[in-house]
């Protein structure tokens, strides 16, 4: 084990690229390779995976024994926790609940990602966004959304 400082950012980047390469590479082996005259569906991806694996390894190798020149910085945990579920929630409920309630709750979830947002302003914002979007997208542009879905007892 070396005691020298390592560039952890680049080590992580190298490992991530190698992991992606391994994933695509393993999947590609299950596909027909073909010949270089008639390339099969697996040919090009297999070549790319090998290249990516190599690049990842070089990035990893170069990071060893080199100090990290830039700190990793803070991670937006709260952002990840609330921003990422917002589109997923919208996707899961837009058909069932309908456009209006799904969008309202989606905006409400997303707004929680900021520590500065107060409950009342979040509520007002979500209402305004929902009304404006319904007017613009549903009535104005005529996108084919059901405004209220079958899950609601209306």
């Amino acid at each position: 084990m070396s005691t020298k400082p390592n560039d952890t950012t680049d080590i992580a980047a190298g490992l991530l690229f190698m992991a992606f390469a391994a994933f695509f590479g393993l999947q590609a082996t299950g596909l027909e390779m073909g010949t270089s005259l008639r390339m099969g569906p697996g040919y090009f991806p297999a070549v790319l995976s090998a290249v990516l694996f190599l690049l990842g390894a070089v990035i990893l190798f170069k990071a060893l024994g080199r100090p990290d020149d830039e700190p990793f910085g803070r991670i937006a945990w709260r952002g990840i926790l609330f921003i990422l579920p917002a589109p997923i929630f919208f996707g899961l409920t837009v058909r069932g609940l309908g456009f209006v309630p799904a969008l309202f709750i989606t905006t409400l979830i997303a707004s929680q990602a900021s520590v500065r947002m107060r409950p009342l302003s979040a509520l007002v914002l979500a209402i305004v966004v929902t009304i404006m979007s319904t007017l613009i997208f549903s009535y104005g542009l005529g996108l084919p959304f059901r405004r209220f879905g079958p899950w609601l007892p209306l």
Binding site: A86, P87, F90, G91, V94, T107, M117, L125, A126, F145
Partner: peptide
Amino acid sequence: PYYILFPIIMAMCSIGVYSVNSNTYDLF
């Protein structure tokens, strides 16, 4: 302030992506 802006952006993202071809997996 930014905390007003990004929930609006998130709402637009969700609508925009979903309306491409009404595919829930696109939002995932």
